[in-house]
Amino acid sequence: MKKYVVALLALVLIMSTIGAAVTVFFVTDTGGLGDKSFNDSAWAGVQMAVKKFGITANVIQSYEQADYIPNLTAAAQVSDVVIAVGFMMQDALAKVAPQFPNTKFIFIDGVVKAPNVENFLFKEQEGAFLVGYLAAGVTKTGKVGFIGGIPIPPVLRYQYGYEAGVETYNVLNGANVQVLSGYVGSFDDPAAGKSMTNSQFSEGADIVFAAAGLSGLGTIEAAKDAGPGHFAIGVDQNQDYLAPGFVLTSAMKRVNIAVFDGIKSVVNGTFKGGTTVLGLKEDGVGISPMTYTKQYVPKSLLSQLKVLEKAIISGKLVVPNTKESFQSFQVPAIQF
């Protein structure tokens, strides 16, 4: 009897330490923490897991592209789980992950095919579609803008989803809203984002959607400086609060949920290499509740958005996410 109790107690002790003993290291891309979007969202997911599972978490911020391999390597050496965030890290992770077969990697926004890497991709185009449709419906000048960080696949998905949303609005409402687009060239240059936004404003755009990480904070600042009638659209997280009344909405990407799910799978022992794609249906993307800007959006537009959301979720409306699919995109006949 005694032996049985001791064995049970030992088992309980071991089980209770499994959750606590998991160390997680989060390696950011060059945008770093404080970008109020991508990296911050992932870190929020880590913190959620810390609260729920009692794991220990730490972060290494990357300063430049050349840091990815050393940072991932250093993290993998001291940690059970490494969270790699950002497409720019794909090549580096592809080299590091095989070196540490006992370390589990959670990778956001790219794919590395290895048994110890869980990849999470998002259908950014679906959130961007809704945001584009909304922008086309709210614009008073008939011109809206898009600013990207670097033309990597996740940002391109945002771009083409946005343009498809604008085109859909034009077709279904008989309008002719134009999209101005440009790329800053980096995810960590708010000043460049601000100046590009200002030049789009001076070309006549009144709403600019920035999918550019830290650089996008410059877009929000530019909208605020330009005054009423000018809007920015936030990205990745709900950025409406950054400049209340000047951020029309945000195209959300629930990186925090993906990171949390990834860590959960490690804690539960269900971790398996592979790729999960999160879209509108899985609540992986969406638009913000527009707490400060509802007054600028006509109710009819909001109900049209709800219909479009249902169409996307049901699969009736497939939002393009590349140049080719955008060019061959046909706006489906939708009844409002």
Binding site: N58, I60, N71, A74
Partner: peptide
């Protein structure tokens, strides 16, 4: 180069 160990 030392910064990543410092962050750890």
């Amino acid at each position: 180069a030392g910064s990543n160990q410092m962050q750890i």
